[in-house]
Design a protein around this nucleic acid. Sequence first.
DNA 1: AACGAAGTGGAACTGGCCCTACGCTTTTGT
DNA 2: ACAAAAGCGTAGGGCCAGTTCCACTTCGTT
Lengths: 216, 216
Amino acid sequence: MGSSDIFRPLRVDAARNREAILEAARQVFAESGMDAALEEIARRADVGIATLYRRFPTRQDLVAAAFEPRLRAYEAAARAAIAAPDPWEGFSTFVRTACSMQAADAGCADVFSLTFPTTTELDRQLRAATAGLNDVIERAKAQAALRADFVLEDLVVLLMANAGVVNATKRHAPEAWERFAAYMLDAFRAPGASPLPEPVGPARLARAIRRSTARR
Amino acid sequence: MGSSDIFRPLRVDAARNREAILEAARQVFAESGMDAALEEIARRADVGIATLYRRFPTRQDLVAAAFEPRLRAYEAAARAAIAAPDPWEGFSTFVRTACSMQAADAGCADVFSLTFPTTTELDRQLRAATAGLNDVIERAKAQAALRADFVLEDLVVLLMANAGVVNATKRHAPEAWERFAAYMLDAFRAPGASPLPEPVGPARLARAIRRSTARR
DNA sequence: AACGAAGTGGAACTGGCCCTACGCTTTTGT
DNA sequence: ACAAAAGCGTAGGGCCAGTTCCACTTCGTT
């Protein structure tokens, strides 16, 4: 990847530990979100905390590496939407898939909602995948399935909202998001019932994203 | 209030400090949510941490006291909705008001979305106020302004969702919630475009609420 | 089998926050 | 003016998470 010139393979024990850390990280991030305790991850991987730091100097390095499979899944969902013959079908399936991933994995809730500061590379890819949907969106509008004033950023806002739903309900009503997503899809469906306030333009949303450290 | 039999007035300096603490708490809670650091509140009130603890032995005592004006405002908004001649008008104004309060005050985002464990008394009142809306909801359905499958709990879920939006956008796109709320209102408006998944019944939502400590 | 490089884990330091104990200060009532 | 009651702030112990350091172990090579 983007590391040094000479690619030196890891020693086998080191490689094994690296995998154990990633596996543990995926579990823990899924349960507790991207701001979970690193020591918990090390503990669960049966590895000293220093080992974790040596392999992943910053939290973001670990997040990026652990999140990769989910990113692929997200990209795949976007591609599926693009490839779908019926654009509304593609669009709505994508929405449900992404929301369901958020529900199943607290890390996805954090990352899809761009609420967690990730590597520039990771969120470049995430945005790219999302932006790819512009095509479906246009086609869905063209056949008057999607309301004309819908914009790509509405999708991001939806994921932020869904993260809120999921976060509040995951313990005792883990399927609440389904009804919520259905409402949103109804809202997106043409014709728009009433005029909407301006969307926050892509530029501002982008700036918004960079640094909502999720605070707490 | 609910304290001891003999009501002993506070010494004037103590009363002054109490007010300072409440004022600081309101500021800090509004900025950082209900899980803000108590020491920060004491610091900002120019008061020792022990004073804060003496006056408000638990975090929830402080939250309840600090939140009171907001609770009143919420109740007032609900009453206004009930009193509105046009039920849809009343309903939608209420939704916008509650969302806007969440946007303006991170504490409201936490409490309205029932994401933060509060005193039983406080959230009893909050629920009562919300439940009062059942009347408007029925009237709005009766005149086919609100879709027939809407339930009261959808309102709570909306507030959870809006908390997510607000949390992610407050720094750089603080009015994003307006467009989101408008979408939701469109979704709620009759006729329902497509069948919805079952709502999570009141009982389960209630259990959900008790203890979503907002984790992180 | 033996040596050096690579890797390891835990101890130690930091800083933030919660919460309590305790000796000092202010108010209040006489 | 003074003493008792009420209130106060600081200091300190506990906990938890992040981060760095370093003496020790394991691996891979010759």
